[in-house]
Nucleic acid binder design. Structure first.
Length: 205
DNA sequence: TTTCGGATCCCCT
DNA sequence: GGGGATCCGAAAA
């Protein structure tokens, strides 16, 4: 079980896809690549009834990719300065995607570090969704890429399986809506996993 | 056309 | 532990 995924393997409920993606690797040859990173933290966004999902308000040119096909890359711009990357997963034609939150760089660390001149550390960690896209050199131009296509500059590779007892779940980070839904998944013990911050403005109370 | 809020990161205290 | 940077997408009017 190595190499790339097939589209059928990824055309599943984003909740299942989220778990499957833990331990898999994203490789990018964008720019001067390659940089390859092992995914250790993800969040699922799914359907028309999830207020935190971009798909909640219906299909728009921006979120069009979320409607499938599965296995494509959904990149969006946030906060006027950051990009975040998702893997599209669909169930019964519902829109859905898995946000890639954190990863460990396993190849191309020097380039990864060079892409983050202000950061401390050795460039082997990508702890945060916007850091992950920076390290891999991902941007708007990569939106909609087929991650299962061997010719694609960004590909998803099956990595080492993560033991089920090392998978943790909890509420999504920075999301005010649907906090009761534990749709965040991460690999216990990875130094790249971000510290939890609750959603919404400041701490209500 | 205008308004407003957001799946964030980094530096400073 | 808190606030500023900085700009796009969607909704309202």
């Amino acid at each position: 079980m190595s190499g790339g995924f097939t589209r059928d393997e990824l055309a599943i409920d984003p909740l299942d896809l989220a778990v499957m993606l833990l331990g898999s690797e994203l490789e990018s040859v964008a720019g001067e690549g390659p940089v390859r990173a092992r995914i250790v933290e993800v969040e699922a966004y799914r359907g028309l009834d999830d207020p935190a999902s971009h798909s909640y308000r219906g299909r728009t040119p921006r979120n069009d990719v979320m409607w499938g096909p599965a296995g494509h890359l959904y990149v969006y711009f946030v906060y006027g300065m950051h990009f975040c990357a998702n893997v599209v997963g669909t169930r019964d034609g519902e829109p859905g995607a898995v946000l890639l939150r954190a990863a460990e760089v396993v190849e191309g660390a020097p380039l990864a570090k060079a892409r983050r001149p202000k950061a401390r550390g050795d460039g082997s960690l990508a702890g945060g969704p916007a850091i992950l896209t920076t390290v891999l050199g991902l941007g708007r131009e990569h939106n909609g890429l087929d991650l299962t296509d061997p010719a694609s500059p960004v590909r998803l590779l099956a990595g080492e399986r993560v033991d089920a007892d090392r998978v943790r779940t909890g509420p999504r980070v920075g999301v005010a809506a649907a906090m009761e839904v534990p749709w965040r998944f991460w690999v216990d013990g990875s130094p790249a996993v971000s510290a939890y911050r609750r959603g919404g403005k400041r701490s209500p109370r």
